[in-house]
Design a protein around this nucleic acid. Sequence first.
DNA 1: AAGCCTTGCTAATTCGGATTATCAAGGCGA
DNA 2: TCGCCTTGATAATCCGAATTAGCAAGGCTT
Lengths: 343, 343
Amino acid sequence: MPDKVAARLTQRDIARLAKVSQTTVSLVLNNRVEDSARIPAATRERVLKVIQETGYQADPLARRMLKQRNQILGVFTYESVFPSSSGDFYHPFLAGIEDCAEQLGCDLLLFTSAPVTQGRRRIFHENNRLRIADGCLLLGRRIPGSELSRLIAEGYPFVSVGRRDDAGGPVPYVGADYVEATSTVVERALALGHRRLAFVGPGIGAESSADRLRGFRRTAGKRAPHVTTGDRPPAEVLADLIGRRITAAFVEDRADAVALVAAAAERGIDIPADLSVIALGDPTRPASTDIDFTGFHVPRREMGLRATELLEAVLSGRAGTETQQLIPCELVEGSTLSEPKGL
Amino acid sequence: MPDKVAARLTQRDIARLAKVSQTTVSLVLNNRVEDSARIPAATRERVLKVIQETGYQADPLARRMLKQRNQILGVFTYESVFPSSSGDFYHPFLAGIEDCAEQLGCDLLLFTSAPVTQGRRRIFHENNRLRIADGCLLLGRRIPGSELSRLIAEGYPFVSVGRRDDAGGPVPYVGADYVEATSTVVERALALGHRRLAFVGPGIGAESSADRLRGFRRTAGKRAPHVTTGDRPPAEVLADLIGRRITAAFVEDRADAVALVAAAAERGIDIPADLSVIALGDPTRPASTDIDFTGFHVPRREMGLRATELLEAVLSGRAGTETQQLIPCELVEGSTLSEPKGL
DNA sequence: AAGCCTTGCTAATTCGGATTATCAAGGCGA
DNA sequence: TCGCCTTGATAATCCGAATTAGCAAGGCTT
């Protein structure tokens, strides 16, 4: 008989079948047992029986009309969530988010409907659907400050995965402590005797870039050289480093580091004997990763998990929670850092 | 001032600010211009101005109370969506789903709230939230027929990614044509002169397993041997194959194939000279994949995409759409199949 | 001037479930 | 027998937006 989609059962239907009122059905369902709501066992069972038989499920949307919470956490990514490239940067974050969401009994809403304009998604567009979710997690290398400040202004609960600069107010985030991690590996290089260090990578733009450069400068010195990659071929970057007689290169993106090592192999430059290469994190672009780089890993999974926890804390109004958290990176001994040759 | 979460703006608020009724606000928002709804430009602009200034956004949930569609597609996976293991089987499916959802302007709801009992998730549990989504995509190696038949009985719109047996009615799916693909690679082996073929893997349980075995039997013959792996160590499976003087092993799971090849290397058995190994798909468990297996790949991305398209078709009631679709697998030439030695 | 149409807008209702306020029936004490 | 309390249940309202029905004011016709 269900020619079209079967008509959805409502509490009214259940009420009719059990010969009670919709109110009673609701009371039974919510197990309300106060003075104001007394349901004798007999009636309760009768209602429950009908619910059982029909397989009735309360419409979650109607519920949220009255309650505040919806048990849905939004996930907004500024690039495609599931990139076709195998070098999947988002994946570990999502794994952590999923883990936590599962424990919280929340569903995850991926805002795939946000139109991509100028290569990136925008939260705020004509028909934004942010409010379906109770709150939202933000992922992406760069997030426009304008969107962050609007979220803050609207009082929409969100947590950024990755540190963000203030945007008309402090942005809640769970980030990785790139400053500290970078500083530590630079220290290690200094201890080994390196004196000519260089930072390789953008170093500006995203907060994550700036933090690495900051950590580098903090320990390597204010005037330590900064070699940008941009669109330059790796061979050229390498030549630049050699020309400046650099002995240790701190490369922001592991993918760049891989390319640099390949270029070195081609020129017969030994790594780490001639040049130490330190990877300041994980590849944001696909890169074969069989090289055992010295450097650190970004605790992506844990960041996702902790960010979700923080969002939950924000949503349940738990005061006193630190809304800006940094997680230490996992240092990797690796084999691409050694004493400089001339020592 | 927003001590708590800022109170959400409603159409009533907009109406008050613009000195019109809630109805008028709604009409303006929905750009209704029929006879029954005439809004002069002046009024329209006044309302729009207030909407602009306040940044009002209609509550999507309230909308769906009245409309049928919610622009949300559910995704239900019978295991963790983002497995921590790097061997990520779901990822390509999701990439395809995301692609299509983005084009459709739909958001994706991952049902992470479904509790995991006995190692797998269940759709139907105490407080199932299926109805938030307009329809649902189902992912997983095995999906209990009981859940499928219940979905069908309730008339809930869904599409399975992967073929499923009937469950109280035909199950809508977009699957991979394992029967045909397996049959084809068997044919190729036969053409090369192989006469002692074996199927390696469960071959039962999931539809995908059964289909491969079926394709194998169709071309290799009804009595061609079927070697199960189960918990047996790869060396034992290998010994079994050698003992039966098998020259070509058709391995269901690429991960098993990898293990088999490793065991062969240990025993000094040359692949493919002594034993050809054909991989019938992609690894469902993590496995290093540097071996260039002969066999086929599962068109996972396309399956996800086409399944999403099909769900959309079902939702919009487009009749005449084939609700059970099989996509051919991509055959891979590879280097693990050659003429049998004794020839 | 009565009748009728058009314009511009709004009151009322709806969706499904939660909550509040009430209400009828029955029991009991004074 | 009159009030009063308890028990068992329900009518009414609300949430926010969409929709239907309809109303008041002004203009035009005859």
